[in-house]
Design a protein around this nucleic acid. Structure first.
Lengths: 186, 186
DNA sequence: TTTTATTGATTGACGAGTCAATAAAAAACC
DNA sequence: GGTTTTTTATTGACTCGTCAATCAATAAAA
C-alpha cells in the first residue's frame, strides 16, 4: 500500500499546486484529491515539508528523463547542446503546476537546506551536460556552459511569468546565443 | 505622522524579511521592529499584502536609483551597458533581505497580479535601458537586449542562491557575454 | 471639542499534526 | 478448515498554535 499511497499523494500535490498557483495548499486538500484522509498523508510522509520535497523530486526526475531521451536522439555535439535547450523549454516545463513548484523551489532555497540541495543538483547537472556538449565546440566550454545555463534559467523565468516573452521566443533566443557562442553555421 | 510611520514600516519589513530569510514574517514582528503596535500597522496600511507591496516598491526604487547614478557616469554606449550590468550585481542587490524579497516576488508573480505588474515593470525597464545602450553597437539591439536581460536574471539567481557562483563571477560572465555580443575590444 | 494617533485585548479562522478507535487482511495456531 | 491473534490500513475528532484583522477605549493635539 505504502508506495501506491505515496505516489498518489505526490501526483495530487503537483495537481493541487498547479490548480492553486501557489504552495499555499493544505495537506487536507492534497489528501482529498488523492482520495484519502489527511491523517493518512501524515502517516505516510510524516509532514508537509516531506510531501513537498517528494513532489519536487518527482518533477526533477521527470525533467531529467526528458533530457535523457532528448540527448539520446542527438548525434553531433551541437545537436546535444540544442537538445538540452529544447528540453528546458519543453511544454511540460510550462505546466502551471511545474512553474509554481519551480518558483517555490527558488523562494525556499534561500532558507531550506534540503531544497537548496535539490536546486543545486539541478544546476550542476545542467552545467555538466552543457559543458560536455560544448567541449568539442569551444575552447572555454566551462565558462560557456555557465553562461548558457544561467541564460536558460533567466529565459525560463521570463517565459513562465507570462511577460511578453513566450516559450517559443525564449527557446529561439537560447538557440541564437548558442550559435553566437560557437562559431557560425547552423 | 502617516508618512513617517509608513516609511518606518517599510524599512522594518525589509529588515525583518532579511533576518528571517523568508516572507513568512508576521505583521506583529514587523510592527515591533518599527516600534509600534500591529494595530497601527494595519491602520496605516490596511493589510499585510499592502505592506509587502510597499516594501517591494521600495527595493525596486532603490535599484532604479542605483541604475540612474551608474548611467550618469557612463560616457560611451558600451560603458552604459556595463553600468547596467554592474548595477545588477552591486552589493546592495545581495543583501539577504533584498534576495528574499526578489525570490518572493518571483514566487508570487504567478498568482498575485499586482506583484506580477511590479516584476514586469522591472523587466521592461531593464530591457529598455539595455536596448538603448546597445542600439549604437548592434544591428539586433532588441534581441540582444532580451538576451542580456535574461542572462542577468539567471546569473543573479545562481549567485544569490549561494551555489558555487559568486557575485563577482556572475558579473564577469555577464561582461564576457556583452563583449561577445558586440565585437571584440574591451 | 473635535480630530488624530495609538494600543491592549479579543475574535475568528485556519491548518498542521496527534491519537485513540475501527476495519480489514495476514499469520499463527489447533 | 476454522478460529484466534497480530499486523497493517485507515479515519474522525480533537488539540494546539498561530496570526490577520477588528474594535472599543485612551491619550494627545489642534
Amino acid at each position: 500500500m505504502e508506495p501506491i499511497r505515496r505516489d498518489a499523494l505526490v501526483r495530487a500535490t503537483i495537481a493541487e499546486i498547479g490548480a492553486a498557483g501557489t504552495l499555499d495548499v493544505t495537506v487536507s486538500q492534497i489528501a482529498r484529491r488523492a482520495g484519502m484522509s489527511s491523517a493518512l498523508a501524515h502517516h505516510y510522509f510524516g509532514g508537509k515539508d516531506q510531501i513537498f520535497l517528494a513532489a519536487m523530486r518527482h518533477i526533477l526526475r521527470g525533467f531529467r528523463a526528458e533530457v535523457v531521451t532528448a540527448l539520446r536522439a542527438a548525434q553531433t555535439p551541437r545537436a546535444r547542446a540544442e537538445a538540452l535547450i529544447d528540453a528546458s523549454f519543453a511544454a511540460s516545463s510550462f505546466d502551471p503546476a511545474t512553474i509554481s513548484a519551480w518558483m517555490t523551489l527558488y523562494a525556499q532555497a534561500a532558507t531550506h537546506p534540503e531544497t537548496n540541495r535539490l536546486l543545486r543538483l539541478y544546476q550542476l547537472r545542467l552545467h555538466g551536460n552543457l559543458r560536455h556538449a560544448l567541449r568539442p565546440l569551444s575552447t572555454s566550454s566551462d565558462a560557456d556552459a555557465a553562461m548558457l545555463g544561467a541564460l536558460i534559467d533567466g529565459l525560463y523565468l521570463r517565459a513562465a511569468l507570462g511577460g511578453g516573452t513566450t516559450a517559443q521566443a525564449a527557446r529561439a533566443t537560447a538557440h541564437r546565443a548558442l550559435g553566437q557562442l560557437i562559431g557560425g553555421q547552423s
